[in-house]
Design a protein around this nucleic acid. Structure first.
Lengths: 253, 253
DNA sequence: CGATACGTTGATCCATTTCAAGATTGGTGG
DNA sequence: CCACCAATCTTGAAATGGATCAACGTATCG
């Protein structure tokens, strides 16, 4: 599986479901993606309430799912390259949140008509798409946990750890860190705290030699302490040991 | 659609997807449910890390999805009668959380083998099941938002409002309130606060004439103020205007 | 080189946690 | 039916994390 062969879907394929897909399914998926385009930072891909007829594949860059309320922006999910950002829109249609790029991004689109066809013609592939929305939900639950359990420093540590693992999974992180274009305001919006307080937490992480955030890059200084501080357990990201989504079930009747 | 005809699935059918289902699909679904049983309060249906081969339908009672960490219990989701509690286990297999009853409950089970068969033989019905997991995810996002946005009083108000709507949808609430067996400790675990502080918030709601919580029942005294306090917008619960999951898409090729 | 977004810091105030203890309730067996 | 126990709910006081208001430093880009 090369980048040349699957210019749009290769990071998706790099990601969490690749090993369950056949060559043919990979090709099918790649062909689904149309209207690939580059968009600037802070571009609103979709607005809350929009009725969508296509789903967005994030090919390069970062995307936040946001909900605004009385002038305050809240980030309820973050996406990295390879993520299907709003596959759930296929069934839900009307979005409960907006979708906004952070930093320049490259996007592709898959028409819902085509996904519908897949459902009957390629049930196994359809199940993989279902699976990828379930992983999203698992990440949601982890965010709920982090918001209930941790205070600001732990939340930021958790966010950093999660982002490192997800980016690493698609080849965009290395042991020293990863590129990360979120401003402190945006990180605060994703951690349920204020930018001012988050700034103090950033300093704390820096001074205690755990991680450094500056100029669009996060540097990991001590992964072990970072993981502890964020009470981070990576298993939820992978649906570990799972992917019983393979072909066995199809066969067994 | 009567209770007699669908003793196990009728509340599910009462719920969010009913109108998209044919009579035959309703019957199919009812037949999927096996091993119906009554279980006591605080019964652990599934433990974090379990590998599941069946999914749980909550027929009567309440269920919490919980994650324990250093002795503290966190509730990441709540379920009401009619909910498929762990349909996501179909694809994810290894659970990232435990599933525990709150108050006595009646449960039914659907074997994953059967769901797998559905996927190819009944794609439309399969899509409805997918849809129901997506609604779960939408509720997760709303919880993330409430945890980021609101402080303790708002969070509790939001929880009450959400529970009222979900229970009302399956015929278990009326304008004056609804039965609710969670202890204050459990409500605190679901609101990301301490039991002690939650108790003070409960008093606040009582004294300001918004809602009363006592002896397993929540009484709504002023729905409008409750809704405002919890910044509650019911639309996310229904996938509003959506359910493009109907038959149109199947036909249109 | 000035404008504008972003990051940093200090001081004050309030929501929430924590520790500690007492009051109520529901269920159980005698 | 009462006595008792355990769980649940309730309240107080002290300590703290985080919000808020206000201001200033610093990158970045046309």
């Amino acid at each position: 599986m090369t980048r040349e062969q699957f210019p749009n879907s290769w990071r998706f394929l790099l990601g969490r479901v690749r090993h369950a897909m056949t060559q043919r399914e990979c090709e099918l998926l790649e062909e689904l993606v149309t209207n690939v385009e580059d968009v600037p930072s802070q571009h609103t891909v979709l607005k809350r309430g929009d009725i969508v007829e296509q789903s967005t594949l994030l090919i390069e860059g970062f995307i936040a799912r946001v909900i605004e309320r009385d002038g305050k922006r809240h980030i309820v999910a973050l996406h990295v390259p390879g993520d299907f950002v709003d596959l759930h829109g296929f069934a839900l249609k009307r979005l409960d949140h907006s979708v906004v790029t952070i930093g320049r991004a490259k996007l592709g689109y898959v028409e819902h008509r085509r996904i519908a066809r897949l459902l009957t013609e390629e049930p196994h592939l359809a199940r993989l798409l279902w699976f990828s929305t379930l992983l999203d939900a698992a990440v949601h639950r982890e965010w709920i946990l982090k918001l209930e359990e941790l205070n600001a420093d732990g939340r930021l540590a958790h966010l950093i750890a999660e982002m490192w693992h997800r980016l690493n999974f698609v080849g965009l992180a290395d042991p020293t860190g990863f590129p990360f274009p979120l401003t402190q305001v945006e990180m605060a919006d994703a951690c349920g705290t204020t930018a001012i307080h988050l700034n103090r937490v950033v300093r704390q992480l820096r001074e205690s030699g755990i991680a450094d955030i500056s100029r669009g890059r996060i540097t990991i200084l001590d992964m072990e302490r970072l993981t502890n501080l964020g009470a981070f357990e990576k298993s939820y990201l992978y649906g570990e040991g799972t992917l019983q989504i393979g072909r066995e079930l199809d066969k067994e009747n």
